[in-house]
Structures are given as C-alpha cells and as structure tokens.
Write a protein that binds this DNA or RNA. Sequence first.
DNA 1: TTTCCAATGTCTGTATACAGTCCCTGACCA
DNA 2: TGGTCAGGGACTGTATACAGACATTGGAAA
Lengths: 252, 252
Amino acid sequence: MTRAAAPVIEKSPSQTLKAQLLLRDLIVQGALKPGERVSELQMVDRLGMSRTPIRAALVRLEQEDLLEALPSGGFAVKAFSERDFAEAIEIRGTLEGLAARLAAERGVRPAQLREARALLAELDTVVRRETIEIDVSLYVELNARFHALVIAMAGSTALARQIERASALPFASPSALVPVQTRSPESHHILTIAQDQHRCVIAAIERREGSRAEAIMREHARIAHRNLERAFADQRDLALVPGAALIRRAEV
Amino acid sequence: MTRAAAPVIEKSPSQTLKAQLLLRDLIVQGALKPGERVSELQMVDRLGMSRTPIRAALVRLEQEDLLEALPSGGFAVKAFSERDFAEAIEIRGTLEGLAARLAAERGVRPAQLREARALLAELDTVVRRETIEIDVSLYVELNARFHALVIAMAGSTALARQIERASALPFASPSALVPVQTRSPESHHILTIAQDQHRCVIAAIERREGSRAEAIMREHARIAHRNLERAFADQRDLALVPGAALIRRAEV
DNA sequence: TTTCCAATGTCTGTATACAGTCCCTGACCA
DNA sequence: TGGTCAGGGACTGTATACAGACATTGGAAA
C-alpha cells in the first residue's frame, strides 16, 4: 500500500502520476483482475481524486499495454498468456541486440567503456562471491545499469524509447526474472554465464564486432526466457514473477 | 455538426480522434514547426473544439513521437535529423525481421501462404509491367498489404503492436519512401529487387528457414534507407518524403 | 413460461470553470 | 547603464457539470 516515504526530489507529484502509479500497482498486484473493466467513477471513489487525472492515467496505462481499450469505450485489464510473456522478452532481446550492434558499429566514447568496465568489475564481486546467498537486489540493480548502459552506447533516443516501451511490462524488464532464477539449483551457474555474456558484449562492442555483439545480447535475453519456463513449471516460482496476476486463469 | 447522415461504418468520429488527425496533419505538413510549442488554448481556437479532446489528442501524438513533453508541462513539435529518420527505419526493419523469423519458426497456416502467393502475383503484374510509369499508388497499397501479412504471420499481437508504433512516424512506414524511389533512374531496377526479396521472404517462411527470413526482411528495409539517402542528397526528392517538414532546419 | 420491449441506471465523451505556476516584461534602484 | 524585483499574462493541471450511449433488468404480452 503505502510506499516508502518519498525521498523524491520532484516538487509535487501530479495527480495524474499518482493515479498512474496507484492503478499500475492495483493491476500488477492483481487487485484488478484480468479482463475486468476499470470504471473511471469507481476509481474516483477508490483513489480519491477526480476523473480527469484518472482518465489520463488510464490512457497511459493502455500505452504500457496493461490495459486495453474496449470498443464501447473505457478500458479493461489486459490478460496475458505464457506466450505473451515469452514474446515480450523476445522483443526486448531483439531490440537490445540492435542496440549492441549499433554501439559496436558506431563506436562508443572511452568514458562509456570505462564505465562499462567498472560495472563489470562490480558485477564480478557479486557473482564470484563464494557465499551461497548472493545479494539479489544488488545484482538486480547492477544488471539494470548494465542494460541501460548498452542502450545508451547505441546513442539512439528513438531506440532507447522503443526499448523502454518493450520493457514496460513488469515481467519484460531485464531484471524481472532474476528472483526466480535464484531459486534454481543452478542459480550460481546461470549467473556466471550471464556475467560472461555481459563481458563478451562489451568486448564485442569495443572491437566493433557488431554482429557478435548483437547475437550475444539476444542470447542473453533468452536466459530470462529459460527462467520464465521454469516459473511456469513450478507454481511457487511463478509467484516470484512480477505481474503473474496478469495471467489469464484457466477457463472456469 | 454533421450528424450520422453518412452510411459510414464508424458511427461518429469522436472529437478526440478528429483532433488527433487534424493536429497530426498540421504537424506533418509543417504548419506547426519543429520545436514550436503547441498550446492547448491556441488549438481550441484553431480546431474549434474544447480543451479536453485536444489534450487527449496531444497525449496520443506524444505517443506517436510527433510531440515531446516539455519539462514545464505542455508539448512541443519534435524535431528530427536524418539520423533519426534512418534509425526509425532500422528499428522497423529489425522488428519486421523478427516477425519473419517467428513466422518461419512457428509455421504459418496454408490460407496465409495462399494469400501471400496471391499478393506476390499481384505485385508481379505491377512490377513486371514494361511501361515506364508504374502504378505507384497500387504498388504502395500492395506493398503495405505484404508487410501487414508478414506481421500477421508471426501471430504475435505484442510484436504487431510494437511494429505499429515503430511505423507510426510518417517516414518510417514500409511504403513511405516509394515515391522518392520512383524518381530514381534505377527505379525499375530497385522495384525488381524489392519484389524478389518479397518472394524470398515468403519462400524462407514456407521452408521454415527462420534466420534467412529474418535477414532478408532486414535487408529489405534497407532499400528504404537507400531511398532516404537519395532524398537527403537532392532537395527535390526530399520534398517527396512524408514528414520532411519535421527535419530540424540548419541553425540560423 | 418465454420473449420482447421499455425504462432506468451507469458509463464515457465533452465542455468549462478555477487555481496554481511559470515566464516574460517593465520599472525602479544602485 | 545594468541588475533585480514585482506585477501581470498565459498556460497547464484539476475538478465538475452535462449529455448521449450502452447495458441490464423488470414487466407485460403471447
């Protein structure tokens, strides 16, 4: 419910933004079920603000693919299948592959390469740790920064924006399925592989090997795909998948 | 104003949709210049409707990347460079390549293959014509249908939607640069090549050759890239590019 | 009992009023 | 003459009223 007290620098979170965050939570957490219509007036009662910002938030959430517009007007919570989850990851992987290739072909600034090497070193300290339990939240954060850096290296705002859209769904972001992975007996094994891919992508970019950078980045995304399959095979793992509440339940 | 006198399928185009179409035209045609702020109240005067639908239309046009949100609120017309144009085409080509690969790997229904063959035959009659002037508008329509069919063959609504977004910019759609191409002395030559790529993509999909289908589809998009370079080299050709008005003018 | 029609309630689309904020301008002071 | 502060204008964000559309439900007739 109540999030951490805002250490936000933003002056005043607009009502529209508040509505967007609150509604997104309601949907992702499953308080609003897939297929269910989201009435503006009901949300007025529920969120305690007027229709205008709620309406704006609904439009934005439709852009995020969390809602779908009904033909008769209004919106309903979108329902997803395992296939939808997999396709979202595949799309993200393809676009990130393009980003890696562009970065390699166009070349990147030395400062970015230094930043990449520093990130890789940090990730090493997390992954190579001999303790059984790794620091998941730290890995997630570093992993997110790595992906953001590769995208920045491509130097294309259009591509960055497109990837942002593809990663908007809660289960599609690069780090979404890492928590699932940690429950696997091969968890440490997989992390080692992922980190090697990180290294190889940067090496390929540095050497201007565009095709290789692209291929590795794509394959990197398929780790998420494997984690997804594991999650769908085991109900306990599925609970760790963000947005699992969005899955269309078996027909009653 | 004009009520439902027309036997149109659509009951009544909503004010929001009208505003979206009108504003898009104003932007693409250059009536609103790149970088210029788009004030809601000015558009109220200009379009003759209230702020609410105009506001909704502005949000949607920001979605289409034709507008950008200003930090202080409101929107401004986005300014593009030649590089932005090229990147948009590259992104579309990459995603269409993914669509072709998925279609090949997953297999397509026989009905879709028949439809594809019929389309290819129709395109042949346009391209193989010996007359110097080909029917550009017919080619554009058939070409658009071909691309839509490949996307449909992939069977992924998420991917379809992502491609739709990538093609939303007026210069990024598959047929946007065909008119430029027709002014080239090699026009017929290029059309022959493009049509052969169409055939090869379908053949690859039919044979489940995913990697090949993807590569050809990507290369196919690069024809648009070549046309773009030609357009930027010759001012007269540039006038044929949809959305040329969006290009950031040289700093004065 | 079933079917059709009508009435009612709820919903969205639209218009508009109000308030807070940002920017620009102009005047005054050093 | 230059800088700073105050005032005003314009714009967006938000709230709310109104009207048309859709669905659902209840009743009446066959």
